[in-house]
Amino acid sequence: MITNTTLHDTEEIFDLYKMASDYKKKISGVQWPEFDRNMIETEIKENRHWKIIIEGHIACIWSITLEDEQVWEERNADPSVYIHRIATNPNFRGQKFVEQIAEWTKKYALENNKLYVRMDTTAGNQRLTDYYIKCGFSHLGAKKILNTQGRPAHYHNATMELFQMKV
């Protein structure tokens, strides 16, 4: 079941981000920073933070936004939904959550008159790039992020891989 996270989920969300970051570092050598609590709570309050629930447990989380000018620059003018920070509970790995999230986001995009579903990830993890392509995303290539003011630390001085799916 896909539903919005709540402020009650905040501690578990941060636990999942920590586990995902540790796993990401082990696989690719790159890890997420500790995310700003106010940023996450704002996403929750604005109903932009989501979860997949399986048997009463949070199996996966992610957030969305309808703008991402710092990463997508002039392409931000295209009506799009941007997926950020997918994190899977290790007990639920292998259940193709990215495919489920992509399908859910395509429906969300249609309901909100958007043309694309987009996302980015830190460059250097070919396995993840290949997986996103398998999930239906087109790989648009790598991009050095120049304007990182207000962004989480993993965007600073980073090259990101960009992905897009037409709705």
Rank of each mutant, 00 (worst) to 15 (best):
M1T: 05
M1D: 14
M1L: 10
T3L: 01
N4F: 10
N4E: 15
N4Q: 08
N4D: 11
T5C: 08
T5A: 15
T6D: 04
D9T: 01
E11K: 13
E11S: 11
I13Q: 02
F14N: 10
F14D: 10
A20L: 07
D22T: 14
Y23W: 10
K25P: 03
G29F: 09
G29S: 00
W32K: 09
D36I: 09
R37P: 04
R37Y: 03
M39S: 11
I40K: 03
T42M: 14
T42E: 12
E43K: 12
E43Q: 13
I44Y: 04
K45T: 14
N47C: 10
R48H: 12
H49N: 05
W50K: 02
K51S: 00
I52S: 01
I52G: 05
I53D: 06
I54T: 13
I54S: 10
I54E: 15
E55H: 13
I58Q: 09
A59H: 11
W62K: 04
S63Q: 12
S63L: 03
S63P: 01
L66N: 00
E67D: 01
E67V: 00
E69Q: 09
V71Y: 07
E73R: 11
E74Q: 06
N76Y: 08
A77T: 08
A77E: 08
D78I: 10
D78T: 13
S80F: 02
I83F: 02
R85Q: 15
I86F: 05
I86W: 12
A87E: 06
N89W: 14
N89M: 07
P90L: 04
F92K: 00
F92G: 00
R93D: 14
R93W: 15
G94N: 01
Q95P: 01
V98K: 08
Q100M: 00
A102C: 11
E103W: 11
E103S: 13
K106W: 00
Y108R: 00
L110Q: 08
E111K: 11
N112H: 14
K114Y: 15
L115R: 06
M119S: 04
D120C: 02
G124F: 07
Q126A: 10
T129V: 14
D130A: 15
K134N: 04
K134F: 08
C135D: 08
G136K: 06
F137A: 04
S138Y: 06
H139S: 14
L140G: 04
G141D: 00
A142M: 13
K143H: 04
K144G: 08
I145E: 06
I145A: 02
I145H: 02
N147T: 07
N147G: 05
T148Y: 07
Q149R: 12
R151S: 13
R151P: 00
R151Y: 13
P152S: 01
P152N: 02
A153N: 01
A153H: 03
H154E: 15
H154W: 02
Y155K: 07
Y155P: 06
Y155L: 05
N157Q: 10
N157I: 00
T159H: 05
E161Q: 13
E161M: 14
L162N: 03
Q164D: 14
K166Y: 05
K166A: 00
V167F: 06
